[in-house]
Computed example of a mutant assay.
Amino acid sequence: MTITVAGEKKEYKDGLTLPELIEIEDVETPQYVTVSINDEFVPTEEKESTILKEGDSVEFLYFMGGGC
């Protein structure tokens, strides 16, 4: 199946789960990353059970602190 990850279309196996994608994409600090699929945030408690579908668009979002 084809899904878009961080703006890039890629091929993955059917039935790919979000945790599998996070591992394949070697996401830094996966426990702290926020994920959106098709512009909707995935609640933390649903990450483990989320199965991706053909045409999904996935973004990994990292919140950065900083300032003076």
Rank of each mutant, 00 (worst) to 15 (best):
G15M: 05
I3S: 02
G15F: 09
Y12V: 08
M1L: 13
I24F: 09
V42E: 03
G66F: 12
A6Q: 15
E54Y: 06
E11N: 07
C68Q: 13
E59V: 14
M1R: 10
K13F: 01
G67P: 11
P19M: 00
G67K: 11
G55D: 07
E28V: 15
M64Y: 14
K47E: 03
L61N: 04
K10A: 00
G7Q: 04
K13L: 04
I37F: 11
N38V: 01
G55Q: 09
V42A: 05
G7I: 08
A6N: 15
S49G: 02
V27Y: 11
L16H: 02
L16W: 01
T50S: 08
E48K: 14
L61S: 04
P43Q: 03
K10D: 00
E59Y: 09
E48V: 01
E11L: 01
M1C: 09
D56V: 09
V42N: 06
G55A: 13
V33I: 15
E59P: 05
V58E: 05
F41Y: 10
K47N: 04
L18P: 06
V42F: 07
P19E: 00
L52R: 05
C68Y: 08
L16F: 02
T17K: 10
L61I: 15
F41T: 04
L52P: 05
D56G: 09
Y12K: 01
I24Y: 07
S36L: 07
A6M: 15
Y62V: 14
G15R: 08
G67T: 12
E40M: 13
Y12M: 00
G15W: 08
G66M: 12
V33W: 06
K9A: 13
I22T: 10
E23M: 02
E28C: 11
K53P: 03
E11F: 01
A6C: 14
T29G: 05
G15T: 08
T17V: 03
L18A: 08
V33M: 12
Y62P: 01
F60A: 12
K53R: 14
Y32F: 15
I3N: 06
L16T: 05
T34P: 01
T2P: 05
A6Y: 02
T44N: 06
L52G: 07
L16N: 00
E8F: 03
I3W: 06
I37R: 12
L52M: 11
Q31K: 12
E20H: 02
F60W: 07
D26Q: 15
G67E: 12
K47S: 02
M1G: 12
C68D: 03
D39M: 12
N38L: 05
E59D: 15
D14E: 15
E28Y: 14
K10F: 00
S49W: 00
E46L: 03
D14R: 03
E20Y: 04
K9P: 12
Q31P: 00
L61W: 02
M64F: 15
V5R: 13
L61D: 01
E48D: 15
E11Q: 09
S57Q: 12
E59S: 12
L16Y: 02
I22D: 04
D56F: 07
E54P: 06
D39P: 01
D14C: 02
T2G: 00
F60V: 10
K13G: 01
S36W: 00
P43F: 06
V58S: 04
T34H: 09
E54C: 07
E59G: 05
E28N: 15
G67A: 11
D14P: 05
